[in-house]
Design a protein around this nucleic acid. Sequence first.
DNA 1: GTCTATAAATAGATAGAC
DNA 2: GTCTATCTATTTATAGAC
Lengths: 237, 237
Amino acid sequence: MQARDVSGGPVACGCANPGAQLILEVAVELFSEKGYNATSMSEVARRAGISKANVFHHFGSKHDLYLEVIREACRDSREALHQGRDSGQTVVQQLSAFLHHHLDTLLRRDRVSRLVVREVLDSTPEGGKELAEQVFFDGFTELVEIVREGQQQGEFRSDMDPALLAHMIISISLFYFQSRNVLRHFPPVDFADEPQRFVEMACDLLFHGCLKAGDPDNKAAVGNRPACRTMSKETPE
Amino acid sequence: MQARDVSGGPVACGCANPGAQLILEVAVELFSEKGYNATSMSEVARRAGISKANVFHHFGSKHDLYLEVIREACRDSREALHQGRDSGQTVVQQLSAFLHHHLDTLLRRDRVSRLVVREVLDSTPEGGKELAEQVFFDGFTELVEIVREGQQQGEFRSDMDPALLAHMIISISLFYFQSRNVLRHFPPVDFADEPQRFVEMACDLLFHGCLKAGDPDNKAAVGNRPACRTMSKETPE
DNA sequence: GTCTATAAATAGATAGAC
DNA sequence: GTCTATCTATTTATAGAC
């Protein structure tokens, strides 16, 4: 990967040079439209109005270019998450704002977002490692840190795995994004075309839970809790 | 779709006939391995040891056969959900058990599960309608009904959209399934290869929320709540 | 080299006999 | 229910003209 920005600037995008930027935009288009195999480096070069050799100069290989496209697709959300940290907001507000932004970005950039999701879905164990390390690591790590911060400041329960909440947050927006075409046709669902409202409701659910609050006699809630947090060797009839 | 079971038996699988059953198994294999386009009806017939015309006799078209494969992949989970209803368990226990079963099924039948998820991801607005109506409708509807039951019996908050919780439940297992190859390589994640434990932790989070309980002074929690439930016209403050 | 025309192969689907 | 035979559309391969 020769195209890494060595200028010391923000790590947002792997390419500071305007030339590489154009290639990246073209590549995002092409990979989104046609997928990895059907996209040729020759076509990328042609659409960018440069030589194929130049493309290989900026991005060492087709695979590297592809990886950079995936990174680019996640950049906005990653930056939004980072910027929220010194905004004076509570952690709950930061996470809620991130979810709004994340889902909005997914929907706005539908095609390339699908590309990312498909890449994750089709990832082999080895490919997953690469994605984790070279694409999602920074964002996920920061999300986990924010959750930890929420625990330290007393907003969140401390008996909770921060990585779990981070995972759930990502899953909320991503799964909504990928299921909305189906969701729309379930009669009891009225939020399939209202992502904003969905995020608000989902946040509420995630923060406060779905059990009836203020009801210590809730047998189901209390009775179930053990079964729901141990590997349950102790079948609690 | 001529192969529907008209014998009055359970609607579980579209095919009661042993002949159709074999075809379906072969089709699951082939579609899972090679995808829709790369799978030919001739090959299905050959692998099933029958004529091509016979395949068309049982399943009216390639598309219908494919749809039946998707349905078949969801059958186990749908049945498990249904059977849990008259098991005497609380709704919380039913949902927890369903999540365990659902994720277990996804992981056990990895390839065909991927097929289903990919189908949802790649669905056009029209394809989404078909999937919703002909594949997922029964299961999702039942899940929503179970949640409603939980609300009526006082286990769950009543100021919550049951379809939202149903969606979240599905998203938990499905997104874990599809992200686990990536998840495994995030250092703060220690549940990527422990689906049982993951489900238990996720249930806990989903049921009880992530906010610190028993702390009415939690400004973040209270302060955020209005912004997080704007759907209600009756702003309870 | 590139293009078009055509042949060959393969796909999905149907008809009618057994 | 199962088969053989057949139809039609599409894809792929090849030949030959320009």
